[in-house]
Each structure stands twice: as C-alpha cells, then as structure tokens.
Amino acid sequence: MVRKQAEEYATVWERPEPVERPVLSSLSRDRIVRAAIELADAEGLGAVSFRRIAGVLEAGPMRLYGYLATKEELFDLMVDAVYAEIVPANTSASGWRARLTEIAHRTRETALRHDWLVDLFGGRPNIGPNGLAFHEASLAALDEVAGFEQVDTMMDAIGAVHGYVLGAVRAEVTERRAERATGMDEQHWQQANGAYMTKMLATGAYPMLARVVEDASHPAPGTAFTARLEAVLDGIEARFRTA
C-alpha cells in the first residue's frame, strides 16, 4: 500500500496522510519530523531511525511507514522544516547586499543550532515549501537590481554566496564536533601542538604559514564569517554590477 501511494504521488509533500484510528496514539508527519529533529539535535543524524522515533512517539515503527516511505523522505522533511527558521517572515533589510547578508547569517545561525544540517545540505535543492521559499527569497533579493537582469547572472551570484556560506558553516560545525570529540577547544589544540608547529615553522619551509601564526588576528568565528561574506559580496558587485 505504501509503495503504491509512493508511486501514485511524485513527492512526499503531495502524498496524503493516512486516516488515524482513534484507539491509537495520534501521529502526523509533523510530529514525526519534530521528533526526528529533536533526536538529531541531541545525538546527531546517526541516531535518527524509524524505531527510535516510534519509541519517542509511543507508536509501532510500522505505523510510521504509513506517513513516510523511506528515511530519505524523512531527511527531506527535516531539512524543509529547518528551512522555515532561515527564511524570515518579515524583513527590514533594504538592498540586495543587506538581504543576502541576512539570509547568510540566518543560515549560519540555524545550522549551528542544528549542526546535522550541514550533512544534508548541498546536492539537489530541497523542493519542499520552505526550501522553495528560501530559494525564492535569495533570488528575489536580486530582482530588478542593475547588473542582475539575466537569470544566469543571478544564479551565479546566489551560487557564490551560498557556496561560501555552506563551506564556512561546514568548517565551523566540523570544528565544534572536534571539540566535543576530543574535549579540546581550538586554544587547547594549539597548545597541544605548539611545540611541533614551532619546530616545523623553524625549518623555514613554510614562510606564509609562519606569518599566519605570528601576525594573523584570528578573529572569532562570527567576525570572520561576516568579513569574508563581505569580501564575497564585494567580488559579486565588482564582477556583475560594474560589468
């Protein structure tokens, strides 16, 4: 029955939910997805399984298959639910740079709240209603802006911003996971490896890295994210708006 439904409806967003029987605990796709997100937030994406979710919701695992055919569908719905936290209902940001900056910062903040999100970002776009709203808001920031009249130009600019944000957030999440796994924050890691790095830099084989160690300000992640985002936006403006 589930397979027949999956074949009849192209996507999970179009497929109707089964009719619940009053004698059973109430279920819905939203309840299942929320439980999955809470599990992923607490224990990571690897903890998410139909059996674990069913236990949280006090339901038999097989009942979940009436709502979702595969774990991939569950992941799609989880990502789409989190996209709702990124796209603001209202925005006071004025101008294309400010609007893309707002989306970039909200993406970072959301990914840090749900650090499993970076494992599902990328690849084919999420086509749930919130995912579509995210992409619509990104493109709308450039609508009727001089230099971005061509759709391909808009896509290039949005791709550059989202590519930077994804890479930066993935690096930050990876660092946070390393801290949890090792019990060492960046400062303690540097102290633990300080003697080795001093010896290696003293060979003179890495002059540029020596400059980084000695002279770089090493700003906080949020400060670095903002500065580098500005550089990306500067590059977009120079390439497309003055062409």
Rank of each mutant, 00 (worst) to 15 (best):
A84H: 04
S138F: 03
R97E: 08
A178Y: 12
A36Y: 00
E72N: 10
A216E: 13
S25Q: 10
E38W: 08
M154H: 01
A42Y: 08
M155R: 13
V161L: 15
P61I: 08
K199S: 13
G60V: 01
A69K: 08
W96R: 02
L68Q: 00
V173W: 04
T242R: 14
G163I: 06
W189M: 13
R170K: 05
L166N: 11
A220D: 11
D80Y: 03
S94W: 04
R177D: 14
A146G: 07
E73I: 05
P22C: 01
R29S: 03
E172I: 10
V212I: 15
R15S: 02
M200P: 10
G131C: 00
L233P: 07
T174D: 14
V161D: 06
L74P: 00
A141G: 02
T203W: 00
P18H: 03
T107W: 12
W189Q: 13
P221G: 01
G159L: 09
A195K: 13
E58Y: 06
L24I: 04
G66L: 00
E172C: 03
E8Y: 06
N126S: 06
E136G: 04
Y83G: 04
E214A: 15
I158Q: 03
N90K: 11
A205L: 15
M1A: 15
S138I: 07
P18Q: 02
Q190P: 01
W13N: 01
V48K: 08
P129E: 01
L166E: 14
E58P: 00
E237I: 10
I103D: 01
N126P: 00
R113A: 06
V145T: 05
E38S: 15
G122E: 01
L112T: 05
F50T: 11
G60S: 14
S94R: 09
V151T: 13
R241S: 07
A69M: 00
A69H: 09
H135I: 02
V165H: 15
G122H: 03
A137S: 05
D41C: 11
L166Y: 14
V2Q: 07
P22N: 08
R228G: 09
A192M: 13
G122Y: 03
A10M: 10
V151Y: 12
F148L: 11
Q150A: 14
P221A: 07
E230H: 13
Q191P: 08
G60Q: 10
P22W: 07
H105D: 06
W96N: 02
A81T: 07
V79H: 04
E136Q: 05
T11K: 04
G95A: 01
A168I: 02
V118P: 06
M197S: 00
A47E: 12
R21N: 01
G123R: 01
R3E: 14
L233T: 07
M208N: 13
G167M: 13
F134A: 03
H162Y: 04
N130H: 14
T223Q: 12
E73R: 05
A168M: 09
A178C: 09
G147Q: 09
R239L: 15
A210S: 15
G183S: 06
P221Y: 00
A216L: 08
K71C: 08
G122D: 01
F225E: 06
E175K: 04
L120A: 02
A160M: 15
L24D: 09
L24Q: 07
D76A: 09
T223K: 09
T153L: 13
L166H: 10
T242I: 14
G204Q: 12
A202D: 13
R52I: 00
I127S: 02
H135A: 04
T153Q: 10
R34K: 12
K4V: 10
I236Q: 07
